[in-house]
Computed example of a mutant assay.
Amino acid sequence: MSLIANTPTPPYYAVIFTSERHEGDHGYAAMAERMLALAAQQSGFLGVESARSDVGVTVSYWADLESIKRWKANAEHLEAQRLGKERWYSAFKTRIAKVERDY
């Protein structure tokens, strides 16, 4: 299985989540695995790519802005967001971009 998302012909959207984590896991790995499985079930989800070093970068790909809004409002995802603010992240930022070309 490739670690690079197999995205369709543009246009589509990318949600870029960058973060700095506190020391320790504190349930992070299990929640990250659950969120990936849950996102994959959402209408409009196209794939994800992720890397972590000093800064974590996760890029998820979506068919449209409405799919992104539904994912942001998902009850389990809202709980993960709350825990991220409380337990896991010392800093984070989310950016949304329209992909107009890929090659």
Score class of each variant (00 low, 15 high):
M1H: 12
L3Y: 12
I4H: 11
I4Y: 11
T7K: 08
P8A: 02
P8G: 01
T9H: 12
P10R: 03
P11L: 00
Y12F: 15
Y13H: 12
A14P: 09
A14L: 08
V15P: 06
V15N: 02
I16M: 08
I16D: 05
I16A: 02
F17E: 04
S19M: 05
S19Q: 03
E23A: 15
G24E: 07
G24W: 05
G24I: 06
D25Q: 04
H26N: 15
H26L: 09
G27P: 06
Y28T: 00
Y28R: 02
A30N: 08
M31K: 10
A32E: 09
A32F: 07
A32M: 08
R34S: 06
M35D: 01
L36P: 06
L38C: 02
L38N: 11
A39W: 08
A39P: 06
A40F: 09
Q41T: 14
Q42K: 14
F45M: 02
F45K: 03
L46C: 00
V48P: 06
V48E: 05
E49M: 04
E49S: 03
S50M: 10
R52M: 13
V55G: 00
V57I: 15
T58V: 10
T58M: 05
V59K: 06
S60M: 04
Y61S: 02
W62I: 04
W62G: 05
W62L: 03
A63C: 04
D64S: 07
L65I: 08
L65R: 12
E66T: 13
K69V: 12
W71M: 01
W71F: 07
W71A: 03
W71L: 00
K72D: 15
K72M: 11
K72T: 12
N74F: 05
A75S: 13
A75W: 06
E76N: 08
H77N: 05
E79W: 11
A80C: 05
Q81D: 05
L83H: 00
K85Y: 04
Y89A: 03
Y89I: 00
S90C: 03
F92S: 13
F92E: 10
T94S: 13
R95S: 14
R95G: 12
I96M: 11
K98V: 09
K98H: 10
V99G: 04
V99P: 07
R101T: 10
D102A: 13
D102P: 08
Y103T: 10
